[in-house]
Design a protein around this nucleic acid. Sequence first.
DNA 1: CAGTGATATTCCTTTTGAGAAATATGTAAT
DNA 2: ATTACATATTTCTCAAAAGGAATATCACTG
Lengths: 302, 302
Amino acid sequence: MPIQELSRINLNLLVCLQALLEERSVTRASERLNLSQSAVSKSLSRLRELTGDPLFTRTAHGLMPTSRALTIQEQLKPILDELWKVVQPQVFDPLDCDRHFSIALPETANHLKFQNSLAEILQSAPKVKIKLMNLTLKSLEELAAGKVDLVALPDDLDCGQHRISGLHRKRLYKDKLVCLVRENHPCLKRPWTLEACLALGHIGIGAVTDRVSITDQTLAKLGLDRDIAVAVGDFHSATQVCESTDLMFVSLGNWAAYAEGLYRVVSLPMPIEVEPIAYDLYWHEMHHQDLAHQWLRSYFRV
Amino acid sequence: MPIQELSRINLNLLVCLQALLEERSVTRASERLNLSQSAVSKSLSRLRELTGDPLFTRTAHGLMPTSRALTIQEQLKPILDELWKVVQPQVFDPLDCDRHFSIALPETANHLKFQNSLAEILQSAPKVKIKLMNLTLKSLEELAAGKVDLVALPDDLDCGQHRISGLHRKRLYKDKLVCLVRENHPCLKRPWTLEACLALGHIGIGAVTDRVSITDQTLAKLGLDRDIAVAVGDFHSATQVCESTDLMFVSLGNWAAYAEGLYRVVSLPMPIEVEPIAYDLYWHEMHHQDLAHQWLRSYFRV
DNA sequence: CAGTGATATTCCTTTTGAGAAATATGTAAT
DNA sequence: ATTACATATTTCTCAAAAGGAATATCACTG
């Protein structure tokens, strides 16, 4: 691996050599390169030093390459073409892209929201592979480590997004909170007030002692509290508990719409004004300029 | 063909990029390149401008390449390896060389002298092809035009070697002149003197009116002349005429030795002191540094 | 929140590269 | 041969680029 020695030689001279090989004349080469004759002539003498070969000899009809120059000519053109490609801006063709993307989504709302997008992605880029992962507390760390390409995150969840640098973020959409109760729940026959709501036992996501959700924070500001009777790990479990008990579940609009078709539950509005949950898409700076990434991200709309 | 635009970009930066990709650290890359840390940092910022991509993002454990940098990494290494080969001094391996060489030799003496060399050449470089051509007056022009690789020339023959520039020359060997007459020639029974020699009719090579050979020039200096009765085009013809007539043929030592085995002729020394013929090997400057050529020329010894 | 280890930036010096014009070289024509 | 013409090379000057040392900035760590 000859980096040390490569760094000693001036690769720019090789472009000049290519021009000389093509034109076989210092003057014409200098025109091609927008330089003066003398500049190219000096480059040629530097090339002669570099290669230890005269490279060209003067004749009546311009320069005649030495056999060394001719063997160089065969090699050089494709190399320079490759180099040119390297510095050219990337091009991105969805039909041609065969990359693997890992995307971490919160278990509920985003799956629903982005199932259509997913179909579109796979349709316009048939060779692309997508790995969908459930959002965990480690998702952002994996994002920072380059192991995950995209993470969607509800803004009431602290996964350390403020501690991790080098992240980019795009606000996706907001979803308002709603209350889910089982069909024929007694409360449906009574007026639906804050008092009625707090009189019910609640189902929480995460640990029973968690009080980090928007709901709890808003209640706390009003000096109120709710009774989380059951805490479960995911939305499906929560909804199943909701269906089979008199407990209520503070859920999200998207999920509620989905759950009402799947479980025997109905939704009620939040009895107090609660800030809606915002979803943010996160990605690592390393992918920010990546055309394929930009294309992928474009499917995650507001 | 992007030479104009290629010439605007600084290819040297790519070596720096390769070092950065390998080391993933500005500091370590600078050590590899024998540069200061600030120099490499500035090169990196120039690379960022060049590619329009951050290329690396700072993390706790050094630089993390962007996906653009990673795709560049895949392409760059082989390109730089190729570039390195281009500027490396040529290597020459006879076993590997498959070139075609054209060699023009005077019809007689050199064929004999170099038949052994030829065998050696083909033996040590089995893939080499050699085209042997008879020397003509145009041989040196073809040499100048790059159509012939080597020309051997007796120095009494003017093929314009002084008019043509860019030629290299190596003195090969000298051969003295001898007289050939048929077996049982009457002169063999008499003393062999200059007078006896000039009394005979002579066989010339070339036109009857030519008086350019060393023999004729030497005689002219002494105020003498010889009678060229028959002029032929080549040495075989001359020797056949010599065998079947009483004419004599001023030939060369090498040829005489060969001819005495083939024809019924015998050789006599030149009756006066005549400068021996020198043979020179000519080649074009374009091949002077060419290792394969140098190797080929090495078989043409003094 | 200071400390550590790294990169980026600033300022200054040195080197390199480009151009203009003069000079040398080589070719072709007179 | 001599001259004229075209092209390459050299010389000299100047501007631009690259390098180094010191400093600022950043990101993680304890």
